[in-house]
Amino acid sequence: MDNASSTADFVLLGLFNHTRAQQLLFALVLIIAFTSVVGNALMLLLIARDRRLHTPMYFLLSQLSLNDVMLVFTTVPKMAADYLTGRKSISRTGCGSQIFFFLTLAGGESFLLAAMSYDRYVAICHPLRYLVFMSWRLCLQVTVGSWILGAADGLLQAAVTLSFPFCRSREINHFFCEAPELMRLACARSSVFEYAMYICCVLMLLVPLSLILISYSLILAAVLHMRSTKACKKALATCSSHLAVVGLFYGATMFVYMRSRSSRSASHDKAVSAFYAIFTPMLNPLIYSLRNSEVRGALRKCVAQGVALAGRIPFLCLCFCVSAK
């Protein structure tokens, strides 16, 4: 039984069934995923092209956009292929790869959001000392540390999860391989690993979330002392939108990873997982970037350059034809 358990494929039951209503929801999910990839790829392009955006704040935003693009590609293509072809099996190696990449990216995003909240705190509360408190060296260290910590968590959980024997049904009621869902199928005692997973979640989620809440609390305290009502309202609107995205990401992640096995529902977990795996990556460029005046200016400049280049194409074609004759 152990040999069969180590070689057989898993079966992903997916997020939706093939009913008419579920087909509409599946199309909506694909639209959200496409919007997320386009929005985050656009952010990467704008930050790379415009020298005015070559600052620590926008560097962190570019890392968040890169993270979100990779997060969508980790789950959505496999889900879409399984839904359209009806072939829902996934190998043990493929399942381990999904766990590793997903936890690496989710863990990295957790620390990146904390770093971005600290960046906003320094920019609002200590604007004259911004380059001292948020130097390029610190920015790079935080970014590399986020990826390393996320990769360590992903590697550890993927290796330990797949080391368990799976002698029950190999059907995973989910649209991608996620460690808590695989533990439902394990036929060995996993209480020690679940406790270790809980400790990892405390470190990877609650510690960054605490830093975010502290940063935004200090920001709100500083904003409330502003004499300008317009500036106060603008800062409050920005902080509230940021906290809404943060609450959606951290709340959904903790709902899946920080509950006991007895209180979990597979149908609820996969619906909640869709929020932080598909929906949140679409909101990040809208909330953190495209509402920013500097980003909108870079976007207008990029569009103007594209229009100017498109206007010169007929002239270049005419010159090429004349030279050919």
Rank of each mutant, 00 (worst) to 15 (best):
T7Q: 11
L12H: 02
T19F: 01
R20S: 15
L24W: 13
L28Y: 02
V29S: 13
F34D: 09
S36Y: 04
S36K: 06
M43K: 05
L44I: 12
D50I: 00
R52N: 13
T55K: 03
L60C: 01
Q63M: 10
G86T: 05
G86V: 06
K88T: 15
R92M: 06
T93Y: 08
E109L: 07
M116R: 05
D119P: 03
V122W: 00
I124C: 04
L131W: 03
M134V: 07
W136I: 02
W136A: 08
S146V: 08
A152T: 05
G154D: 07
A158Y: 04
A159N: 08
F166N: 10
R168S: 15
R170I: 09
E171H: 00
C177I: 00
L185S: 11
L185F: 01
R189C: 13
S191I: 10
V192C: 12
Y195C: 11
I199Q: 14
L206R: 10
V207S: 07
L211G: 14
L213G: 01
L213C: 14
S217H: 09
I219L: 05
A231Y: 01
C232R: 15
K233Y: 12
K233M: 14
K233Q: 11
A244H: 06
Y250C: 03
A252E: 05
T253A: 05
F255Y: 08
Y257L: 14
S260C: 03
S262E: 11
S265H: 02
S267A: 09
S267T: 04
H268N: 08
K270L: 02
I278M: 03
N284M: 07
L286G: 03
I287F: 07
E294M: 11
L299V: 02
R300N: 13
L309S: 15
F315I: 14
L318M: 07
F320D: 14
K325H: 11
K325C: 15
